[in-house]
């Protein structure tokens, strides 16, 4: 059990959420240029990123701080209207989690998280440009798409990925026009 879940459980023991709204139970609000992000919102995005790029034998989203990258990109590189849509989608996502599992995303099991996020994805065998088979709103699908896109972008452009998972050389010094792919070779 991580610290956040422990704190939440503690809050449940102390009193109902109605009496003690979540936002006051975690006062750590992050201030960005264009918006503020509550602790719960930060946790949600980090949890989603970690579900998409989990820690396995190699580092995951949390280890690599990908949530910080997501918020930076959302703050600096996203238009105001798209930011609004993102937060609207985020609200709908929280509702969806509640409706599906009757609890918060943070309290879901890994399997539940995976199952829920998979509803945003195409089915195996679907065509490249196929849309996922859900009836979610544009904002909700967009919210997931933004989190996933930035998580993957942040991961594949991270120093860890580029130096340990693939071989990025700042100065290749050569061009091998034909290079055999060996077993388990990385791109």
């Amino acid at each position: 059990m991580d610290r956040r879940t422990a704190l939440k459980n503690l809050a449940l023991v102390i009193g109902s959420t109605a009496l003690l709204p979540r936002c006051t139970s975690h006062s750590s609000v992050a201030h960005f240029n264009s918006f503020d992000v509550t602790y719960d919102q930060q946790s949600l995005v980090l949890d989603m990123a970690e579900t998409i790029i989990p820690k396995t034998a190699t580092p995951g989203a949390t280890d690599l701080g990908l949530d910080k990258f997501i918020w930076l990109m959302l703050d600096d590189c996203t238009k105001t209207d798209d930011q609004k849509a993102f937060f609207k989608g985020m609200g709908e996502f929280s509702d969806l989690v509640k409706k599906t599992y009757n609890k918060d995303f943070a309290d879901c099991t890994k399997q539940e998280k995976m199952a829920l996020l998979s509803t945003f994805e195409k089915k195996p065998g679907d065509k490249k440009d196929a849309k996922p088979a859900n009836n979610y709103s544009k904002e909700l699908n967009g919210f997931f798409g933004t989190v996933k896109g930035l998580t993957v972008f942040g991961y594949t452009e991270s120093q860890y990925f580029m130096t340990k998972e693939i071989v990025y050389e700042l100065v290749p010094g050569r061009y091998n026009a034909m290079y055999p792919v060996k077993n388990n070779m990385k791109a």
């Binding site: 290749p172 050569r174 061009y175 091998n176 034909m178 290079y179 792919v181 070779m185």
Partner: peptide
């Protein structure tokens, strides 16, 4: 060509 790749950024 799955077994073929290249190296360097031309």
């Amino acid at each position: 060509y799955d077994d073929k790749y290249y190296f360097g950024r031309r």
